[in-house]
C-alpha cells in the first residue's frame, strides 16, 4: 500500500488557516470560559490568572481574525472558490444530509457521490466562517464597549455567547467526524498533514471531484 498514489485535497492556505484556527479556538474558548464562569477557575494559573486570560483572549482574538484576513488579501480567489463550492447544493447534497443521521449511528446506507467536500463539510464550510464573522464583530464591540452605543454592547454579549456555544457544539461533531468516525481518517491527515489523500479513498468518498480532477489522468 505504501506506493499508492496520493492526491491533493487541502491547499496550503486552507491548512494554515485550519491549523491556526484550531489552536486559537481552544485558547480563546478556555480563556473566555475563565472569564464567564467560575467553573474553570482551576485553569486560571495556566493563563496567569483571570486577567492574564483576558489579555491572552485579546491577543489570540487578533490572530484568529488576522489569519483569514491575510489569506483573503493574499489569495482572494481561493476563498471565493471555496465559498462557491460550499454554496453549490444539488440533489446529491440534500440526499447526503438526509441519510447522514443513519450513517452517523452506524446503519449502512449508500451515500450519493460527493464533490471535493461532501454536503456535511459544505455545511461546515458555511457555518464556521459565519460564526467567525459574528463572534469577531461582537468581540470588537465588547472590547471597545465604551466607544459603541449601549444597545450594540447589550446585544453583543448574547451574540458572542451564542456564537461560541454553537461553534463549540459544531466543533464537537466536526472533531469526531473528522477523526474517529470510520472512514474519515484520510481527510484528517489531509488537513493536518501534507494536504494529500490516497487516490482510492478520494475516489470512494469524493467521487465527483476525483473523477473531474484526476479521472482523466487515470485513463492514460
Amino acid at each position: 500500500m505504501a506506493e499508492e498514489k496520493r492526491v491533493v485535497k487541502s491547499s496550503l492556505g486552507a491548512r494554515i488557516t485550519h491549523w491556526s484556527h484550531t489552536i486559537c479556538w481552544f485558547i480563546l474558548l478556555f480563556s473566555g470560559l475563565l472569564m464567564v464562569t467560575d467553573w474553570f477557575s482551576w485553569l486560571a494559573p495556566v493563563f496567569g490568572g483571570v486577567n492574564g486570560a483576558n489579555l491572552l483572549h485579546r491577543i489570540f482574538a487578533i490572530v484568529f481574525a488576522a489569519v483569514p484576513l491575510i489569506g483573503l488579501i493574499y489569495n482572494p480567489r481561493s476563498f471565493i472558490n471555496w465559498m462557491k463550492e460550499a454554496l453549490t447544493w444539488g440533489k446529491d447534497e440534500i440526499k447526503f444530509m438526509m441519510m447522514f443521521p443513519f450513517d452517523l449511528i452506524g446503519i449502512k446506507v449508500n451515500m450519493p457521490p460527493q464533490d471535493r467536500i461532501n454536503a456535511g463539510q459544505k455545511f461546515n464550510s458555511l457555518f464556521f466562517p459565519t460564526i467567525g464573522l459574528f463572534i469577531g464583530l461582537s468581540g470588537v464591540v465588547m472590547w471597545f464597549a465604551e466607544s459603541f452605543p449601549l444597545w450594540m454592547v447589550r446585544i453583543a454579549y448574547p451574540i458572542h455567547d451564542l456564537c461560541w456555544i454553537l461553534g463549540t457544539m459544531q466543533l464537537m461533531f466536526h472533531m469526531y467526524l473528522g477523526s474517529l468516525h470510520p472512514g474519515s481518517g484520510e481527510s484528517f491527515w489531509a488537513m493536518f498533514g501534507d494536504g494529500k489523500v490516497r487516490a482510492s479513498w478520494a475516489k470512494h468518498h469524493h467521487t465527483k471531484w476525483y473523477e473531474r480532477v484526476y479521472g482523466e489522468e487515470e485513463e492514460e
Binding site: D103, L104, I105, G106, I107, K108, S179, L180, H181, P182, G183, S184, G185, E186, F188, W189, S200, W201, H204, H205
Partner: peptide
C-alpha cells in the same frame, strides 16, 4: 458504528487514524 460493523467494512479506506 463499530458495533454495527460499518467501521470494519470501511477500515481499509481510512486506517490512517483508527
Amino acid at each position: 458504528t463499530r458495533l454495527l460493523g460499518v467501521g470494519k467494512e470501511k477500515a481499509h479506506e481510512g486506517e490512517g487514524i483508527h
